[in-house]
């Protein structure tokens, strides 16, 4: 039972980090990123490939993944962030799918659909295998605390104030001398770095990665977590991640008691999540921790 709880918290922690990156982009800057998972994949594969084949220290390979994802975020943002919001959505989802096909097909590098395993994990020689998950939970939660506090600090700073002003009204921000475009690029790059960090952690947790870990649905899990908790509310993201994965894993228990095949339970789960979102939108459209007053303030 404890093992089970640890597993849920691990995955919820990793996805909380992942969704915090999206919340920075969407909740605070108003950027529509539909390819967040692509940056997660960049983090996971970069970390694994560097540490496994080239013996690069783990911490360095995690940082390398983050830097690469940040650069890619900026690279995608520069041509699109001057255009209407939906262009970024199209380009990012395209990017994440192209990347997944590259990972599937460039077998010499990524081992294609079979994926990669047997790569090093942090402190694997020091921590006994039976308690590794518990140890890794501590690692994930520490990273989560750092990322959460860092983002909170940033969004309460004048820098974050500019981001919020862009979310609210770009023209006003511009009229006050703010370089809107540059802040959007920064937000997207930083959000992508955070996604990459979550990707590295996911790889360590899974011990085995393949392109199927990075399907577009993962991006929408992050969106569900953000919307569930309340866009622009980092505490809400934490709560959303726990609720989402709690439910997701809990529904596996249901399988034992329901006369359904695993595939059917999988489909039921997705249906049920959809239903929950519809109910949420009807009764608490601002998300669980979102502020009600803000809804009436839309332009």
């Amino acid at each position: 039972m404890i093992d089970y709880l640890v597993t849920i918290l691990l995955i919820a922690g990793i996805y909380a980090i992942f969704a915090l990156g999206l919340n920075l982009e969407w909740g605070f800057t108003g950027l529509l990123n539909f390819g967040h998972v692509g940056f997660m994949a960049v983090g996971a594969y970069t970390t694994v490939l560097l540490s496994m084949n080239n013996g690069v220290p783990l911490l360095l390979s995690v940082l390398a993944g983050m830097v690469l994802a940040g650069l890619l975020g900026a690279f995608l943002g520069i041509p699109t962030l001057k255009l209407r919001a939906d262009y970024l959505a199209i380009v990012t989802i395209g990017f994440s799918e192209i990347l997944r096909y590259l990972l599937l097909n460039e077998e010499w590098l990524t081992n294609g659909p079979i994926g990669l395993c047997g790569f090093p994990r942090p402190f694997q020689d020091l921590v006994p295998i039976q308690s590794y998950n518990l140890f890794f939970l501590v690692v994930v939660l520490s990273v989560l605390v750092i990322i959460y506090s860092g983002i909170e600090l940033l969004i309460r700073s004048p820098w974050g104030r500019v981001l919020k002003s862009i979310r609210e009204n770009e023209e006003i921000a511009t009229s006050l001398g703010k370089h809107v475009f540059s802040y959007k690029v920064q937000s997207l790059a930083l959000g992508s770095m955070i996604a990459a960090l979550a990707g590295s952690l996911l790889a360590f947790y899974l011990q085995y990665i393949n392109p199927r870990n990075f399907m577009p649905i993962e991006t929408f899990y992050a969106w569900i977590i953000v919307v569930l908790g309340g866009s622009g509310n980092n505490k809400g993201v934490l709560l959303g991640a726990v609720l989402f994965w709690g439910f997701f894993s809990g529904s596996r228990f249901a399988q034992e008691y329901l006369p359904l095949s695993p595939t059917q339970v999988g489909s039921m789960r997705v249906m049920f999540i959809g239903l929950m979102l519809i109910i949420l939108m009807m009764f608490r459209p601002q998300g669980i921790l979102g502020k009600k007053e803000e809804l009436s303030l839309e332009r």
């Binding site: 002003s165 979310r167 609210e168 009204n169 023209e171 006050l176 001398g177 622009g232 839309e298």
Partner: peptide
């Protein structure tokens, strides 16, 4: 026009260049 989901004070504090 205002930055609706920011407080009046935040609106003001955005001003300085």
């Amino acid at each position: 026009q205002a930055l609706n989901k920011m407080t009046v004070l935040e609106n003001m504090m955005l001003g300085p260049q």
